[in-house]
Amino acid sequence: MDRPGAVAELRTALTRFLGEHAGTVDRWCVALSGGADSLALTAVAAAVKPTTALIVDHGLQPGSATVADTARAQAIELGCVAAQVLRVDVGTVGGPEAAARSARYHALERARAGTPVLLAHTLDDQAETVLLGLGRGSGARSIAGMRPHDPPWYRPLLRVRRDRTRQACAELGLTPWQDPHNTDPRYTRVRLRTEALPLLEDILGGGVAEALARTAAALREDTDTLDAMAAEVLAGTGPDLPVAVLTPLPAAVRRRVIRGWLLAGGACGLTDQQIRAVDALVTAWRGQGGVAVPSAGAGERLFAGRRGPALVQYREPV
């Protein structure tokens, strides 16, 4: 039997996703860059529900305003009820990729007006994310990849290969924008896409991207279970974290309790190494000082330390 057309495949993926995760949604936004993935998603989304396209102009390349305006016009032609260009200033924290991503998500959050946002991440994007997590040794949470449903963010194409979105654009007669950043080897994700993954596919005989995506799904199930156990423990504590509560817990649950406690206290951008350092205040207590953890507070640093029978958080000026 012939394989169905790419547009039909994307429509099926969106309909299935709608049934699994978004059955009560009556309208949505779609994050549109003008590239093949988001353009194809916009086309099928606009045919299903009232859709507003949100186009983020990062202003990082010459002509970015023209690219954004073209994407806006394409969205209207595809049947979107509205299309809005969001111009942002990209900072430098975390490097260019992380800074652009942070600016983009903040802009989408402000503009979505309480509605869900469809993101056009594909199975290939998921595989790259898992590889990045493996390479950085940042723990199971990172290797578990992107969630299909992480309100307000919805990713209905995580089971669809990237080449199918390009084929869908061709079937629809759409001309997607070719982002030069997607072929720039200065970016880690580009080298994974163009060098590492093709090499792994060759060595292992194909199917690597799908296998990495399946690994992410399995790890998410495990992570969700452990997170739920940790949340139950954390709900029974106060601002200080009793060591007697933490000590009997399995290591995976204990570190999740610590992570949730730190986040509740204002920490952000935590790494596995930092969480393990705080965990050592419980498991390898030798009178050591507090552990500095990143936080959004300006002019001061957040610490986790041990004071007698409990872990406490405190801040000190920079």
Results as ranks from 00 to 15, higher is better:
Glu171Trp: 02
Ala209Met: 04
Gln74Met: 14
Ala235Lys: 13
Glu77Leu: 11
Gly23Glu: 12
Arg259Gln: 10
Ile55Val: 07
Val208Lys: 03
His21Met: 09
Arg141Val: 02
Val233Gly: 04
Thr129Cys: 06
Ala230Pro: 01
Arg155Gln: 11
Leu212Asn: 01
Thr70Ser: 14
Thr92Gln: 14
Val56Cys: 01
Gly205Met: 14
Phe17Met: 05
Thr92Val: 15
Cys80Gly: 04
Arg3Gly: 12
Pro156Trp: 03
Glu201Arg: 07
Met1Phe: 13
Val44Gln: 04
Leu200Asn: 10
Ser142Asp: 07
Leu157Ala: 06
Ala36Met: 03
Ala209Cys: 11
Glu221Gln: 15
Glu210Asp: 12
Ala264Arg: 15
Ala36Ile: 02
Arg256Asp: 00
Pro50Thr: 02
Asp202Arg: 15
Arg276Asp: 03
Ala8His: 15
Cys29Thr: 10
Pro4Val: 02
Arg276Thr: 07
Arg162Asn: 11
Leu134Gln: 07
Leu226Tyr: 05
Arg307Trp: 08
Val30Cys: 02
Gln167Leu: 07
Leu226Gly: 00
Gly297Gln: 09
Ala43Tyr: 06
Leu219Thr: 08
Arg259Glu: 06
Gly297Trp: 13
Arg255Ser: 05
Leu60Glu: 10
Glu201Ile: 04
Pro151Cys: 06
His21Leu: 04
Glu232Asn: 14
Trp177Glu: 09
Gly23Trp: 13
Gly133His: 00
Leu241Asn: 00
Gly133Arg: 00
Ala107Leu: 05
Gln288Met: 05
Pro96Gln: 10
Arg72Val: 01
Glu97Lys: 13
Leu134Arg: 12
Ala244Tyr: 14
Pro309Cys: 08
Ala296Asn: 12
Leu311Ser: 01
His21Lys: 12
Leu192Glu: 05
Glu128Tyr: 04
Gly173Ala: 07
Arg214Val: 11
Gln74Pro: 04
Ala298Phe: 12
Arg186Met: 09
Gly290Thr: 01
Val253Asn: 04
Leu204Gly: 13
Tyr314His: 15
Gln288Thr: 07
Arg110Lys: 15
